[in-house]
Amino acid sequence: CHSECLGNCSQPDDPTKCVACRNFYLDGRCVETCPPPYYHFQDWRCVNFSFCQDLHHKCKNSRRQGCHQYVIHNNKCIPECPSGYTMNSSNLLCTPCLGPCPKVCHLLEGEKTIDSVTSAQELRGCTVINGSLIINIRGGNNLAAELEANLGLIEEISGYLKIRRSYALVSLSFFRKLRLIRGETLEIGNYSFYALDNQNLRQLWDWSKHNLTITQGKLFFHYNPKLCLSEIHKMEEVSGTKGRQERNDIALKTNGDQASCENELLKFSYIRTSFDKILLRWEPYWPPDFRDLLGFMLFYKEAPYQNVTEFDGQDACGSNSWTVVDIDPPLRSNDPKSQNHPGWLMRGLKPWTQYAIFVKTLVTFSDERRTYGAKSDIIYVQTDATNPSVPLDPISVSNSSSQIILKWKPPSDPNGNITHYLVFWERQAEDSELFELDYCLKGLKLPSRTWSPPFESEDSQKHNQSEYEDSAGECCSCPKTDSQILKELEESSFRKTFEDYLHNVVFVPRKT
């Protein structure tokens, strides 16, 4: 048989008469490798580009789960590009990614509803959504962080984005990388972005840091009482949809009607710091009717980097990364020049730590249904340095008659930039024990000054392991946590139920 035959053949030295091919099969003959313009397919066939392209389009058009959109890589027609490569849609070739590779997620039936953290986790790592997304989240724990972890990498949506009755959302900033909504599939009414009845939605994105392009379709905003109209108009300008909307697409009466839409800028007039305090004062603000001013709200939190936005980490279910302080308005003076500047002394802060701070007014709604208010920009203030805590785990070892090696770990709280350490030492008198000992005694162990690591005695271990207080009263049991108490109650309830079950099964009433 021919060298490319495997198993047997019907005619000697003829690659077209093989029972099976050793390498690849091409047009009725066995070959060692697939010549151009053919590609290896499933490690035994040679196919042309049209064959591989037909497989790709067949799966793409069917949208069946589990099928493969075949691509070409290293002269092979394979189910998908290997790690580190992405497909070129024009020629199906796998090309190296520039940075992290995109991950295209194809949605069944063309859309997916995100109504819980669990459903959001199914899209973790996706960068391109081939379909439409509907966000409908009523509640949950730590929602802002969970949504950002699972949806934060999405850069492109081919269909539309719909935010509907998501009472738990305060902001859409968890879509931190969303840059493009194509609108290839539109919501009824030709809408590519749809926001309806979101009672706590206050911000779409921080438009000073976020760009969003909507290729096709219109915007729809109705019944978002805490979303200011200025935020919607800003989205029109940034996304390129200005002029597409009709009169009733953006409701003037049901958007922002319960919001404090600040239209003035508060400026800080005085800032002073110490290692654990920050004193702030800002310019006074009074609405047209000074009785509408209820006070100020001061927001602050630790910020290692200057990239904080107002609604980071917030949701309507209680999660809030900001510390909020309510401040009463100052006494009002008739003389504008003698107006008191409101302020606040922030206490209990960490030394040498940068804080993000902003302040906003708290006002009631005027009778004319106009909203007044003022808010400052987010500023960054760093507390002063102070003395560091003591170095940890000092170790001293003498390696000769004239040297001592000293080692330690950095302090747990540096409280500033540590530039150097101060080492103090003092000579001590020799131990009298060394002169009084009889060095001729056998088995004498000389006193040693070398360091030995501390260890816990058996008594201390027994005390720590004991669940009861000892007789001397030195140790006591740790208080039980809520989960331990709940577990004990469940076990007790189970024992009672099981005992009742045994009584009912074992003891049967005697027939009379």
Score class of each variant (00 low, 15 high):
292 D>R: 04
281 R>S: 13
232 I>A: 11
332 R>M: 14
343 G>I: 15
286 W>G: 12
177 K>A: 04
271 I>L: 08
242 K>E: 13
231 E>Y: 01
113 T>Y: 12
215 T>Q: 09
181 I>L: 06
163 I>C: 06
108 L>M: 13
338 S>N: 08
106 H>F: 06
158 S>N: 06
343 G>R: 12
287 P>E: 06
208 S>N: 12
296 F>V: 03
368 E>V: 15
216 Q>M: 14
194 Y>D: 08
327 I>N: 01
143 L>Q: 14
138 R>K: 06
406 L>F: 07
383 T>P: 00
304 P>A: 15
117 V>M: 14
379 I>L: 08
134 I>S: 12
176 R>C: 07
225 P>E: 05
302 E>R: 05
158 S>H: 05
157 I>R: 01
391 P>D: 09
234 K>V: 13
341 H>T: 13
254 T>A: 08
211 N>P: 08
217 G>E: 00
149 A>C: 13
390 V>D: 03
376 S>M: 01
392 L>Y: 13
308 V>R: 04
296 F>Y: 02
147 L>S: 02
232 I>S: 01
267 K>M: 09
242 K>C: 15
104 V>K: 08
195 A>M: 13
315 D>E: 03
148 E>Q: 13
253 K>H: 13
400 S>W: 02
109 E>Q: 15
140 G>F: 06
345 L>R: 03
184 E>F: 13
272 R>V: 12
151 L>V: 15
236 E>P: 01
258 Q>R: 12
411 P>H: 05
305 Y>E: 04
174 F>R: 00
375 K>T: 15
362 L>R: 02
174 F>A: 09
229 L>P: 02
172 L>E: 00
352 W>C: 15
148 E>G: 05
104 V>A: 09
136 N>T: 03
244 R>P: 09
218 K>V: 13
213 T>I: 11
175 F>D: 00
363 V>H: 07
106 H>K: 04
144 A>T: 03
346 M>I: 08
183 G>R: 02
296 F>Q: 10
377 D>V: 10
300 Y>H: 09
340 N>R: 02
161 L>I: 14
212 L>I: 07
181 I>A: 00
117 V>L: 10
262 E>P: 10
232 I>C: 09
215 T>P: 00
245 Q>G: 15
320 N>L: 12
171 S>C: 08
328 D>M: 08
147 L>K: 00
324 V>Q: 06
215 T>C: 09
120 A>D: 01
239 S>F: 03
389 S>N: 11
215 T>L: 08
293 L>W: 06
116 S>I: 13
246 E>H: 13
307 N>H: 12
151 L>N: 01
122 E>I: 03
156 E>W: 06
142 N>I: 00
335 D>N: 06
204 L>A: 13
126 C>W: 00
191 Y>E: 04
108 L>N: 14
400 S>F: 10
273 T>F: 06
125 G>F: 06
354 Q>H: 07
360 K>I: 13
380 Y>E: 01
205 W>A: 02
346 M>Y: 01
241 T>G: 15
305 Y>S: 05
268 F>G: 00
120 A>W: 03
123 L>W: 04
292 D>K: 12
293 L>N: 08
283 E>I: 05
160 Y>I: 01
370 R>L: 05
109 E>I: 03
346 M>C: 05
277 K>M: 10
216 Q>N: 03
186 L>W: 06
395 I>R: 15
215 T>W: 01
222 H>P: 00
114 I>C: 03
261 C>L: 02
108 L>P: 13
405 I>G: 11
255 N>C: 07
391 P>H: 03
336 P>R: 03
403 Q>K: 05
199 Q>L: 11
213 T>Y: 07
159 G>R: 02
394 P>E: 03
344 W>A: 10
197 D>N: 15
392 L>C: 10
225 P>W: 03
292 D>W: 11
151 L>T: 04
411 P>W: 02
157 I>L: 05
341 H>G: 14
239 S>E: 01
274 S>T: 12
254 T>R: 07
410 P>H: 08
352 W>T: 13
334 N>Q: 12
